[in-house]
């Protein structure tokens, strides 16, 4: 499943092609005393599929609302394709597609009417619009559906939301939890569609489904309590996290060794698996020096000593835990 390539306009401010598609600088948003975004800095490379991760209440939806011009920042600024979203809102909106977390549609419209209405708001020519709407509804699995949108299931609404968000062949596609209401097949199709946009459209999507991010994203940012905890390509993040994590396998009962290791200042956490121990360490050099001696002192033999494979979930939990500490 693929979608049409976006129109290639020059950037609104004449920025060179490789400037970030989305650039957020010291962005702050408060609601009374509550701080939703606390100095967020973020750069989303053009053409990337960017995962915006964070626990519930981290500020993901608030950031997306600011990017779409639905909310105003308290301080800082956000730019899409070089244009400030607060001052050039219509310029920005003509080049983005947006799917909110709970999309709202006119219940009396059919899917075709809704997608065509969305296209007319962008001023798309009728012939192009008809062709594009039919192709997007085909992609969304909604072609030939004559039921009014009011009778759609949540999954159908979500797919319709993605179709309408793509009607202007956007340069930047903003998706808020796009797969949360989909069944496994619908989810796979949407993820394939997102992956097919890589390199042509910048996709920025917030989600709490880590498997989705691991599957399609090349870069992620993790947001916690309104702050970006980390922002980097997934591969680099995994490499970075892997060096802080060691797996050892010893011959014999490791109970005494665990007690001994728990006294070491560099040990953050230790977990006992089947025949192995996984250690999270704060000082890798100290751990590499002291571990063999500690194993020998405990009267055990060292069978395996290596950096651990880290899943995005491990990384996410670890980074959020560190940020909260």
């Amino acid at each position: 499943m693929t979608v049409e390539s976006p129109d290639r306009h020059p950037s609104a401010s004449g920025h060179p092609a490789q400037s970030p598609a989305i650039e957020i600088t010291r962005l702050v948003k408060t609601f009374g005393d509550a701080v939703a975004l606390d100095g967020v800095d973020l750069a989303v490379p053009q053409g990337s599929v960017f995962g915006f991760l964070g626990p519930n209440g981290a500020g993901k939806t608030t950031a997306l609302r600011i990017l779409t011009g639905l909310a105003r920042p308290t301080a800082g600024e956000a730019r899409i394709l070089g244009a400030n979203v607060s001052t050039a809102s219509n310029v920005v909106r003509s080049r983005i597609g947006y799917l909110p977390d709970v999309p709202g549609f006119y219940p009396w419209m059919t899917a075709m009417e809704l997608v065509e209405f969305a296209g007319r708001l962008f001023g798309i020519e009728p012939a192009t619009l008809r062709e594009r709407a039919a192709s997007l509804l085909e992609m969304a699995g909604l072609s030939g559906v004559r039921t009014k949108v009011g009778g759609f299931s949540r999954g159908m609404k979500q797919r319709l939301g993605i179709a309408q968000a793509l009607i202007n062949a956007p340069s930047v596609l903003l998706l808020d939890e796009p797969t949360s209401a989909l069944d496994p097949i619908g989810r796979r199709e949407v993820l394939e569609m997102i992956a097919s946009l890589r390199g042509r459209t910048t996709v920025f999507f917030s989600t709490h489904i880590l498997a989705d991010v691991e599957r399609v994203c090349d870069t992620v940012a993790i947001l916690d309590r309104g702050r970006v905890v980390v922002s980097a390509p997934i591969d680099e993040l995994k490499r970075r996290a892997a060096v802080d994590r060691l797996v050892i396998e010893v011959g014999g009962d490791p109970t005494m060794l665990i007690s001994e290791l728990e006294r070491r200042p560099w040990l953050r956490a230790i977990s006992r698996g089947e025949g192995s121990l996984t250690l999270s360490v704060s000082d890798l050099t100290a751990a590499q020096h002291e571990l063999p001696a500690a194993i020998a002192a405990a009267g055990l033999g060292l069978k395996r000593f290596e950096g651990a494979e880290v899943s995005l979930e491990d990384m996410f939990v670890e980074l959020v835990r560190r940020a909260e500490a």
Partner: peptide, 12 residues
């Protein structure tokens, strides 16, 4: 109903 968001995230 959320339909204002649908419309106002377009150039309107």
């Amino acid at each position: 109903s959320g339909t204002a968001v649908l419309t106002l995230t377009k150039p309107v």
